[in-house]
Design a protein around this nucleic acid. Structure first.
Lengths: 323, 323
DNA sequence: GTGAAAGCGCTAACAA
DNA sequence: TTGTTAGCGCTTTCAC
């Protein structure tokens, strides 16, 4: 910038004004400065600007698992909102590791992000208290954080699962299987609770033999479903608590054309072209990202308090062209 | 940092050394400094460190469409490599707009990213020449850039399409439809060329009535496929140049159980549970991100020249439990 | 409307 | 092993 100023025969400050489009600069000078900028191939250093002005022009997005398209979709929505505000998003992933979460979150804060959207991998986020107090707001996404007062944007996991299972019970299903991942994951515990709520409400007791946990992959869910189908008293319906479970269950059910009603939490690509009709607990992933970003920006802009958003779910049909 | 130094009764530089884990500091001083850091709740400003040292600790990833899971998967792989090097990824998307691409790319450079992985939306990236010359390497991803000497990591679109269509021809298909998006998109033009190559090699001429372009959505592909099926001379096979086309074609074919062999470019979730066997031109998306990131880091580390990686494809079976 | 000087928070270079 | 000084590139403050 010094060189540009010298080249254009103006002061540093005038160059700064031109670069930042500030008013009260003579049109002729603007011309001259711009010419010098072009001639010298000058490129402003946004880091230095940020350092001096104290402004923050990025936000951090810390997912739990970048290979999960769900978080990616949310990240895309967050990015759209951020770019609309002239900010950009630094993206990282804890890969479900609490230590990595902590390291990355603190690292993002060191980079002076204006705020942080965080999918907690660990139980305790009190390590961020200092940052929040120092003016870096945090919004929890998908799971509530622990040990830290902050906004949270969640899906109505329990309500969605409850509605899905209540429907199956209403249709007369007595033996409903539940396929899910580890109950230590917040969303899984909530969805299982919704399942149990529906049974309790109907005055029924689920068969413990039909509840299968720790299914991390579609293949595991497929094997579990096959075992259930081959058991003495197979289920007449199955509730799959995430899309990996649903896909696995279908891989077991479709080839043998088993008589099992399928309801799954989470929509997925191609659910439309399935040969049989299934029910899906759907929600608006984009909206989740948008709400999280807007909440964060509201905090950045100084709004106080902390709130918890519970995004609604709805039961929809998928597939079924064959029937 | 001044406060920490004062609190610990040491100089600024000693605090700096402790923070950066530099050697040759007395253990007792390290203790004292760390105690002061904790007491004062000090947080290092990575921007200032970066400004002074000239080091760069982020890379930019500029996708063309964040809602496309393909780019997200690549971004995840890039992020993994970057974090392994202690760097982080700033992510943005041009949403297929050349002007937005330019603005965002230059903005990332102003943020002093150490390098840029770019999916070109426009034809011409010569606007980055200054940045590249000034030491910000660029790697093109998925599409080659224009007007700029830089590495590119591409899929073997043409070869993959050629192999797929050659196989269909070998199996005796004469009337093969081609469903694809806009030929102005590099990958689409290449895949179409592969299709034509296979015909030329076999000494055949494709029926122009069976080549349908500008299918941006599964719904458009479905409609196109329906029209083809209802025409006087329907195709006996279809090659779908991307997964949106494949999904749309299946939505038309499966409900009427039409006798059409399906081959598609790009794998997709749930391809496994399709009721009929299809062929897919598959490739390693993760590897694409890894190669791009590693190429970028090699340039950052000073390797010279520019190379073009052509990632291989392979033909695989999907679905088909029903037959 | 324009410019000079100070300083954001840190690290490099050099000195002790 | 520790400290001093200068300065990264920019914006702020305030004077003109």
């Amino acid at each position: 910038m010094v060189d540009v100023a010298a080249d254009a025969g103006v002061s540093l400050k005038t160059v700064s004004r031109v670069i930042n489009g500030q008013p009260n600069v003579d049109a002729a000078l603007i011309e001259r400065v711009n010419a010098s900028i072009a001639r010298l191939g000058f490129h402003r250093n946004a880091l230095a600007a940020s350092l001096r002005s104290g402004s923050r022009d990025t936000i951090g997005f810390l997912a739990a698992d970048l290979s999960n398209t769900f978080y990616m979709t949310v990240a895309a929505a967050v990015s759209t909102v951020a770019i609309g505000r002239g900010m950009q998003v630094i993206m990282a992933s804890s890969e479900e590791d609490a230590r990595a979460e902590r390291t990355l979150a603190l690292d993002l804060c060191q980079r002076r992000v204006g705020g942080l959207i965080l999918v907690p991998a660990g139980e305790d986020q009190s390590y961020l208290a200092g940052e929040v107090a120092a003016g870096t707001p945090v919004v929890f996404l998908d799971r509530p954080g622990g040990g830290l007062e902050a906004d949270a944007v969640l899906i109505d996991n329990r309500g969605g699962a409850h509605a899905a299972v209540a429907e199956l019970l209403r249709y007369g299903h007595e033996r409903i299987a539940l396929l899910f991942d580890s109950p230590s994951i917040f969303t899984m515990a909530e969805r299982r609770q919704g399942f149990l709520d529906a049974f309790a409400e109907a005055g029924r007791i689920p068969d413990p033999a039909l509840l299968v946990s720790d299914l991390h992959t579609p293949a595991a869910a497929r094997d579990a479903m096959e075992r259930l189908l081959e058991a003495e008293h197979p289920p007449t319906a199955v509730f799959c608590a995430n899309n990996r479970s649903t896909i696995g269950a279908l891989e077991a059910i479709l080839p043998r054309d088993a008589e099992v009603a399928v309801t799954g939490f989470d929509d997925f690509e191609l659910a439309q072209v399935l040969p049989r009709r299934i029910r899906i607990v759907d929600y608006d992933t984009d909206r989740m990202g948008t709400v999280a970003a807007e909440t964060l920006f509201a905090r950045i802009d100084g709004s106080a308090g902390s709130s918890r958003f519970l995004l609604p779910t709805r039961l929809v049909d998928r597939g079924g062209y064959g029937r």
